[in-house]
């Protein structure tokens, strides 16, 4: 899911990095010092959660949870995912260092849209599923676009990667729906806890 170094064209890298950097800047501005520890700890939760492997038929996948991160963090999703991806690249060589901006944008933007969409859905279980599914599906779509814009000949590869992520998106939707229902019962104030406005 993360794009590794050396794949994207300079133009895509530059545009993606600039948009992601603006998102991170706005996210940081909207977070007060009171909310900072919450954002930091939640970022660690999502980092640890991304190490959880779920079985998917013969293969497996790790959780991405950008939909859930969006619902909980709001604007904070940009700095949170930037940090998560930078740490993954620095510590485990997952994804890339030069592509960290594009990867942040690809993951955070769909999550951010889930945050906007979630309050409009009455049934929170369905809302959780849509956020989980939509988060991954949106990221895969953006991955497809960034690979396709970098080089047209990457489109077949990007299409195969995208198709492979449909089961992941469904599993992610189910996990997110269960987590949202749990949180609505136990700590509803956590939903949207890192968005000052």
């Amino acid at each position: 899911m993360h794009i590794s170094d050396g794949v994207l064209s300079p133009a895509v890298l530059a545009v993606g990095t600039i948009i992601a950097a603006s998102g991170v800047a706005v996210g940081l501005k909207k977070i007060s010092y009171r909310e900072m520890p919450t954002l930091a700890v939640l970022t660690s939760v999502f980092f640890v959660a991304s190490l959880i492997h779920i079985p998917l038929g013969p293969a497996g996948a790790h959780l991405i949870l950008n939909g859930l991160a969006g619902i909980i963090l709001g604007w904070g999703i940009f700095p949170a995912l930037f940090m998560g991806l930078l740490l993954q690249a620095m510590l485990f060589s997952h994804g890339g260092i030069t592509t960290v901006g594009v990867n942040t944008l690809n993951m955070a933007l769909p999550g951010f849209l889930c945050w906007k969409l979630f309050p409009l859905i009455k049934n929170k279980q369905a809302g959780g599923f849509i956020a989980g599914f939509g988060g991954v599906a949106g990221s895969v779509l953006m991955l497809w676009v960034s690979l396709g814009l970098s080089r047209q000949s990457f489109i077949p590869a990007a299409t195969i990667i995208a198709a492979g992520h449909i089961p992941v998106a469904i599993a992610e939707g189910l996990v997110t729906a269960a987590a949202v229902v749990f949180l609505m019962k136990t700590s509803p104030e956590l939903i949207g806890s890192c968005n000052a406005s």
Binding site: V45, L65, A178, F182, T186
Partner: peptide, 12 residues
Amino acid sequence: YLVTGNMLGILL
């Protein structure tokens, strides 16, 4: 998947 979601809820 549902149990994983609940576990995640506990972590959060």
